[in-house]
Amino acid sequence: MTEPDLDALFTAASAVRGQAHAPYSGFRVGAALRDEAGRIHAGCNVENAAYPVGTCAEAGAIAAMIAAGGRQIRAILVLADSPAPVTPCGACRQRIREFAGPDTPILSGDSSGLRARYTLDQLLPASFGPEHFVHGS
């Protein structure tokens, strides 16, 4: 991934992170992804008083991609301030898996820059995906 590509992901994730609805935890997260056409889609976390019905930033970015006609994640950045690099939760790793390959970069950053770089296979090894379904008669 080239530096301009990374800069564009940071810009989008940072902008949307500012819109996060996190009144309970105060933990604002922004995510931005690049699709197969090179377009960037972003999402932020949206908390709810009934905690299980909140939405992760990654899920919002994926929904924005699908709504715009994208179908493949080429790279995704998760942006949050934390002592340790923030990676997608287990459910979001599976959501990403639906639209990404094993070598897809999953990047973790904060307001100071890139903190860590992973592949989907590193974060979700031996995963279950669409190819496990047998189609036909």
Results as ranks from 00 to 15, higher is better:
residue 49 A to W: 14
residue 49 A to S: 15
residue 49 A to F: 13
residue 52 P to M: 08
residue 52 P to T: 11
residue 53 V to P: 05
residue 53 V to W: 09
residue 54 G to N: 13
residue 54 G to R: 05
residue 54 G to F: 08
residue 55 T to D: 12
residue 55 T to I: 12
residue 56 C to S: 15
residue 56 C to M: 14
residue 56 C to D: 10
residue 58 E to L: 01
residue 58 E to I: 02
residue 59 A to Y: 01
residue 61 A to K: 00
residue 61 A to W: 00
residue 62 I to F: 03
residue 62 I to V: 09
residue 63 A to G: 02
residue 63 A to N: 05
residue 63 A to W: 03
residue 64 A to N: 06
residue 64 A to Q: 04
residue 65 M to C: 10
residue 65 M to V: 08
residue 67 A to G: 13
residue 68 A to I: 14
residue 69 G to I: 09
residue 70 G to C: 04
residue 71 R to D: 15
residue 71 R to Y: 15
residue 73 I to P: 06
residue 74 R to L: 09
residue 76 I to A: 01
residue 76 I to R: 00
residue 78 V to R: 11
residue 78 V to S: 10
residue 79 L to E: 08
residue 80 A to N: 13
residue 80 A to Q: 13
residue 80 A to V: 10
residue 81 D to H: 05
residue 82 S to M: 11
residue 83 P to R: 09
residue 84 A to W: 12
residue 84 A to Y: 11
residue 86 V to F: 04
residue 86 V to D: 03
residue 86 V to E: 11
residue 87 T to E: 05
residue 88 P to A: 11
residue 90 G to E: 05
residue 91 A to F: 07
residue 91 A to E: 05
residue 93 R to D: 02
residue 93 R to S: 04
residue 93 R to Q: 07
residue 95 R to F: 15
residue 95 R to N: 14
residue 96 I to V: 13
residue 96 I to L: 07
residue 98 E to W: 10
residue 98 E to L: 09
residue 99 F to K: 01
residue 99 F to S: 00
